[in-house]
Every structure is written in structure tokens, then in C-alpha cells.
């Protein structure tokens, strides 16, 4: 029972202090492993890999995984509930606040600035994934703008990924009828393409 309470409390704290999305929970998990001895640093690295290669929000996946390692199925449920409880409370308060201030001119003006900011942050996160997906970035930055080594630069680009992206762009943007197809269809198709053409080289 004590263990469950501790799990809930540790993840409650993580949920409360990790601001800015799932990956922000990572430093908290490392220190939790050190402090409580529930899991090792290496297990945290495994957790990140599993969380990234399964559906669902990464922070939630990590909480579930740690909870399971620590205290089985009840542990996974308790850790996840601990993580989301502060969010739910804070957001419910913010939502009620917004409801009563929705027509306040200052709130409206703030949102005028927030919307392009929010779009930019999403675009930046997307570009981070682009860098990881289409390029061998460390090779490219080590070569820099040396055009005599253009062959090496070309090799650091993942061409099959670029071709798949181009095809997907044409399908989802260029063909009117297909733009109505649910995005999960393209995700599933891309998984199959990735397996057939060994996209990770594995």
C-alpha cells in the first residue's frame, strides 16, 4: 500500500513540475530512479525507446512502463493516474477561468499572439522530427558547407524516406478525394513500407 502511495506521489510531482510535454518528464524520471531505486538509468533509456515506438502520449507511456516495473498492473494504473491528476486539476481551473474571461479584450488580444506562437512551436517540433528522419544530422554538421564533399553529404540523406514523404505529400495534398482518407491509413501504410524496405536498416 505504501509503495502505491509513493508511486502516486512521485508521479503526481512529475506531472505537476514537468512543463512542456512528455519529454519534459525525463529528468524527473532519472532522479526518481536514483532516489527511490525503482529502476536503473539503463531501464529509463529502454523506457524512452518503448514509449516512442508505441502509440499514445510519450509521458503517459513512460509512467505506465515505470509503474508496471515497480508494482505490476496496479502500479501502471496508479503511476499514470498520478501523472495526469495535476494536469486535469490545473486545466479544469484554467478552463473555468477562461470561460468567465472569454470576452475580456485582453484575453482576446493575448490569444492573437498565442496562436501564431503555438503554430510555430508545433512547426519547430515537426522540424526536429524531420531532421531525425531524413538526415544523418551529425555527418552533415561535421561536413558543413564543404561542396567538394558533396557525395558524403548526399549519402547522409535518407533517400527512401524522402521518396515516401514526397509520395505522401502528393497523395494527401494533391489528390482531392484522398485528402478525406483518415490519417491512420497513411500511418499504417508507411509502417508497411518501412518494414518492406527496411527503413531503419534493421
Amino acid at each position: 500500500m505504501m509503495l502505491y502511495l509513493q508511486l502516486f506521489w512521485e508521479f503526481f510531482k512529475t506531472g505537476l513540475f514537468a512543463v512542456g510535454g512528455g519529454m519534459a518528464t525525463l529528468p524527473f524520471l532519472y532522479s526518481m530512479g536514483d532516489k527511490m531505486g525503482w529502476f536503473t538509468q539503463a531501464q529509463v533509456a529502454d523506457m524512452v525507446a518503448v514509449s516512442e515506438s508505441t502509440p499514445g502520449p510519450i509521458g503517459v507511456n513512460m509512467a505506465t512502463y515505470v509503474g508496471y516495473l515497480t508494482a505490476g498492473i496496479p502500479g501502471s494504473i496508479i503511476a499514470t493516474l498520478g501523472l495526469v491528476t495535476p494536469s486535469v486539476i490545473v486545466i479544469l481551473i484554467v478552463a473555468m477561468f477562461l470561460k468567465s474571461f472569454r470576452n475580456n479584450p485582453y484575453v482576446e488580444r493575448a490569444f492573437y499572439g498565442l496562436r501564431p506562437a503555438s503554430t510555430a512551436l508545433i512547426a519547430a517540433a515537426g522540424l526536429g522530427v524531420v531532421r531525425l528522419t531524413f538526415f544523418d544530422w551529425s555527418t552533415i554538421t561535421s561536413i558543413g558547407l564543404d561542396f567538394s564533399r558533396i557525395m558524403e553529404i548526399l549519402k547522409a540523406i535518407h533517400w527512401p524516406a524522402i521518396i515516401l514523404a514526397a509520395v505522401l505529400l502528393v497523395i494527401t495534398r494533391g489528390i482531392k478525394k484522398l485528402s478525406k482518407v483518415h490519417p491512420i491509413v497513411w500511418i499504417a501504410a508507411s509502417a508497411v513500407v518501412g518494414i518492406v524496405f527496411r527503413f531503419a536498416g534493421a
Binding site: 497513411w186 508497411v192 534493421a202
Partner: peptide
């Protein structure tokens, strides 16, 4: 690994469309 390397490509395109 291979499936997710493929899915990541798709996620890039979907986020681009969403943005």
C-alpha cells in the same frame, strides 16, 4: 524499428499538413 522509421516519415508529412 523498420515500421517506426516508416511511421516517422508519415508523421512528418501529417504534422506539416496540420501546421
Amino acid at each position: 524499428k523498420n515500421a517506426f522509421a516508416g511511421i516517422r516519415v508519415c508523421v512528418c508529412v501529417l504534422i506539416f499538413n496540420a501546421v
